[in-house]
Amino acid sequence: MFDEHEPAENELAPDLAAMERQLARLTPAAPRIDRDRLMFAAGHAAANVARPSLEAKEPELAATLRVAGRHRWFWPAATATMTAATLLLATMLVWQRAAQPIAAQSPTPPQPTTVATTAPPTQAVDTTVSATPAAAPSENYGWPMASPPTAGYLGLRYIALTRGVGELETHNRTASSDSDSTVIAPATQRELLRELLPASDRNTSPRS
């Protein structure tokens, strides 16, 4: 079983050589290995590491396999990216809602107290305003509010509704002391229309 041409210095003593021959007569059992399965697994393993040699022999085929391998990761990568983006947006949404808690809404928002009266409309407006004086700006029931108007007809209306008609005089005095132009020009119909209905300004064609 071993090489007969090994150096003489490796030769054994006769008794040890006899021992060696005696042992060599024993035959170990062959391994229980499925030959076909082994060849299949070996071929599979060889194919997995054969890329570099394939590169040298068949560059086109190797390039095709390389591209296919790259594309194999495209959809998983896209899926992972989209999932991450979705989670990020969801987290931001939850965070935003938690940072701006909405006020508890009552099922029916309280209506401003209107007093049935036969007084002229200016008095009715006055009564309504005094019934809901300062609560209106702060209690908006969770609805976002635009910044209140400060000038023009809407500004005057806002002041009259929120602070009362008496405040109009104060406002006018303040405005006149702030600016030199003490004379407020009366609003024309066109200016009022433009202020109240800004969209109508674009739609109306100038009269000839």
Binding site: P31, A45, A46, V49
Partner: peptide
Amino acid sequence: ADDCVQEALIELARQP
């Protein structure tokens, strides 16, 4: 032992 032999032969096939 048989599994070890088989794995060694497969490892051999993996060598360039």
